[in-house]
Nucleic acid binder design. Structure first.
Length: 210
DNA sequence: TGAATGATCACG
DNA sequence: GTGATCATTCAT
C-alpha cells in the first residue's frame, strides 16, 4: 500500500506532458523512466531526449499527416508512441501538447538504475554503458515493444511511466541538433536534442564505458 | 562503412 | 502489389 502512495506521489502526470514539447524534452532530463513487469522494477535516469515538435517539424513523423502508425501522436499528451525502426529496434516516445499537435519526445538514453540483470539479459551485454545508451538499446533493455504503443504513462496502473527525481540544474543540460534527421531540411539543425552534460550514458558516447 | 531486416507509406 | 525509406546498431 505504501508503494502505491509512493508511486502516486512521484508519478509524472499529463499536466507535465501537456506543455511545449521542447520544454518537456528538457525537463525530462534527470527524471526516472520506470517499467514494471511481473512485479519487477526496471528503471533508469533519463540522460538524453529529443523533441519532435509536431506537424510543421519536417523531422517529425507527424509532418506527413496522420497515418495508422503515428495516430497516437495526434492524441492527448501522456501516452506512449512506440514504433519499429530498421526492422530491428523500437523507439520509445511520450506524446506531448494538445490533441492534434502531432508532437512527442523521443527517449534516447537512460542511465541504468534498477533491474540491471534484466537489462543485461535482454541486451546480451554486460557493460552498463552499453545497456541503454541509445533509443533502440533502451527499448531492448527495458523490453519495450509496440505492445506499449497507445498506452497511458500517467495512470497508477501504467506499466511504464516516469517518476519525479532530484532536480537537475539547467547548466548541466546540453542542447544540440538531433541525430539521424539529415533529411529534414531547415529542421535538421534545430537544437532540439537535450542531454545530461558529461554523462557517459548518452548515445554514441566515445568515452570509456564502465 | 555497410549489412541486417521488416513495417510503413506513397505510388499506381 | 511494389519499392524506397527509415528518429539504429553492430561488426568489419
Amino acid at each position: 500500500m505504501t508503494e502505491f502512495f509512493e508511486k502516486k506521489k512521484l508519478l509524472l502526470c499529463s499536466d507535465f506532458f501537456d506543455r511545449s514539447t521542447k520544454v518537456v524534452a528538457r525537463d525530462l532530463i534527470g527524471k526516472t523512466l520506470v517499467r514494471e513487469v511481473n512485479g519487477v522494477r526496471v528503471s533508469g535516469k533519463v540522460v538524453e531526449t529529443e523533441a519532435y515538435v509536431g506537424v510543421r517539424d519536417l523531422a517529425c513523423h507527424a509532418s506527413r499527416g496522420k497515418t495508422p502508425r503515428n495516430e497516437v501522436m495526434f492524441g492527448p499528451a501522456g501516452y506512449w508512441y512506440v514504433y519499429l525502426i530498421y526492422g530491428f529496434y523500437h523507439c520509445l516516445n511520450i506524446v506531448t501538447e494538445g490533441v492534434g499537435s502531432g508532437s512527442a519526445v523521443l527517449i534516447r538514453a537512460v542511465e541504468p538504475l534498477d533491474g540491471i540483470v534484466f537489462m543485461q539479459k535482454n541486451r546480451q551485454r554486460e557493460v552498463l554503458g552499453d545497456l541503454s545508451s541509445g533509443p533502440g538499446k533502451l527499448c531492448q533493455a527495458f523490453g519495450v515493444t509496440r505492445q506499449l504503443n497507445g498506452a497511458s504513462a500517467c495512470a497508477l496502473a501504467s506499466e511504464c511511466f516516469f517518476e519525479e527525481a532530484e532536480h537537475v540544474p539547467k547548466k548541466s543540460i546540453l542542447s544540440t541538433k538531433r541525430i539521424g534527421v539529415e533529411y529534414a531540411g531547415a529542421w535538421k539543425d534545430k537544437p532540439l536534442r537535450f542531454c545530461m552534460k558529461d554523462s557517459p550514458f548518452v548515445s554514441k558516447s566515445k568515452l570509456v564505458l564502465r
